[in-house]
Write a protein that binds this DNA or RNA. Structure first.
Lengths: 151, 151
DNA sequence: CAGTATCCTCCAAGATACTG
DNA sequence: CAGTATCTTGGAGGATACTG
């Protein structure tokens, strides 16, 4: 099956005397095996966050509906992404044994939670779109950082 | 320089009669060029969210401090990630012209905003770690989805 | 210390074809 | 319709060496 989307792979421990938890004031390191890293890495898939956002409105969607919303995703990647999310307990997969197969994807309770958070980022991005774009333009105009020589 | 972290690449427009904004109730498609996609894709970098979380506590950090917190990141990737974030107007880069160079990275106002959001995800992940892990175990036990034959 | 420049690996992601 | 199975590849990500 080629596994692909495996996540995990290493069960390294080493020592990392963990101090606080993750963010807030006690932020220290973000160890490789630990939870926030794992989720952050899952989420970091090219289509993962987009899938969560697409499902975030509460409605269950069929495979191809989802596919259309993502715009650009291939069957393979969508399937893979959804499997990974299902594995993590974030999405549900419901198969209706009808004659043209009907499969619906929805969010679990857990999935709803994270989808809300991701959606906030998407909304934030939309609301700050112009600022982000302007920043990019400014940065590109000022060109390469270092290089005080050769001119 | 090899460019790498370019993001952009396409300035496609097409038509997409955008209806609502992004998430909420009006979620329709997530077009390729538009803002939420761009940010979501930036964020989806392997180290981007981790960097934001590491900076989220408000303190500016030196390059190697940051490097240590991320645990596993290479110089190249950290630099690349920070450049991308700087370009987006999310992080500031301050160079102190001391004899061993000192460079500090901090968040801009915009950066603070998104860092908070990302941090929430990390915190959520930590708080739900056991549930996520359990879900994974369950899923893996039930093994491959289809395949009602060959046994 | 904080980078930049190369080179290289590997796998996420894509394209294509087939199936229940 | 909703997948699975292969094959292929671009480029993200890594290792290493050098520099201001």
């Amino acid at each position: 099956m080629e596994t692909d989307f495996d996540h995990e792979g290493n069960g390294r421990h080493e020592d990392h005397r963990e101090r606080g938890a993750v963010g807030g004031r006690g932020s220290e390191v973000l160890p490789r095996g630990r939870a926030p890293r794992a989720t952050l890495e899952l989420i970091a898939g090219k289509w993962t966050m987009l899938a969560l956002v697409a499902l975030a409105d509460g409605r269950a969607l069929r495979f191809n509906e989802l596919r259309r919303r993502l715009d650009g995703v291939t069957q393979k990647m969508l399937t893979q992404t959804l499997r990974a999310l299902e594995r993590e307990g974030l999405v549900t997969r419901t198969v209706f044994p009808t004659v043209p197969p009907r499969v619906e994807y929805g969010l679990t309770a857990l999935g709803e939670e994270i989808a809300q958070l991701v959606t906030r980022i998407a909304e934030w991005s939309a609301s700050r779109a112009d600022q982000l774009c302007a920043a990019r333009a400014t940065f590109d105009r000022r060109a390469p950082h270092p290089r005080p020589l050769s001119a």
